[in-house]
Amino acid sequence: MYKALRRLVHGVEVGITVWSWSVTLGLTLLIVADIFLRYFFSRPLPATWEIGELCMPHVVFLPFAFALTRGSHVRVAMLTRRISAENQRRLRIATNLLSAALGGVLTLYSWRYFSFSFSIREDMLAAVRLMWWWGKIAMPVGMAIFTLRYLLDTVDLWRAEGAFKDS
C-alpha cells in the first residue's frame, strides 16, 4: 500500500517535471518564432510576453518535488555534518515536518489563490484572451506534490532508525 503510494507520487512528480520542461522548450520556440515573424515579416505573435508570464509558473513550481527527490534543493550542511547520524536523522525529520507543514498551508492558500481566479474567469490585460488561472494552477499542484514528497521522505527517515545516510 505504502509502496504503491510512493510509486504513484514518484510517477506524478516525474510526469509534471516532463510537462515543465516541455513548457520551457515550447516557450523557447514561441519566443524564437515571435522574433522571426517580427523581424522578417513584421507580424509578431500577439501576446508572447503575456503567454511567457503564464508559462513561468509551470516551468518553476512543477519540478519542486522532483528537485527534492534528486537532492537539488540547497541546504546548509555546515553544522549537521558534525553531529551523529542518529541526531542528523532526528533533525532531518524535524525540518522535513516543518517544511511539509509549510508546504501544506502554501498548497491550501495557493489553491484558493487559483480557485478564486478560476471562479471569476479572471483574464489578463492582453491582446488575446488569456486566463490568469492557466498559470496559477501550477502553484497548488507543484506545492501539493512537493509537500507529499516531504512527508514520504519523513516516513522513510522514520523507518531508517539507525541506518541514516546523508544523501
Binding site: 517580427r38 513584421s42 507580424r43 509578431p44 500577439p46 508572447t48 510576453w49 491582446a127
Partner: peptide, 26 residues
C-alpha cells in the same frame, strides 16, 4: 509604414495606423 511600435494593453495594437506593427512589451 513598416515601423514597429512598442506598447502594452488589450487594444492599443489594433489602433496603430495601417502598416505599423505592435510589439507588446512592459
Amino acid at each position: 509604414k513598416g515601423e514597429k511600435v512598442s506598447l502594452v494593453g488589450r487594444y492599443f495594437g489594433r489602433w496603430l495606423p495601417p502598416g505599423a506593427t505592435a510589439v507588446v512589451r512592459p
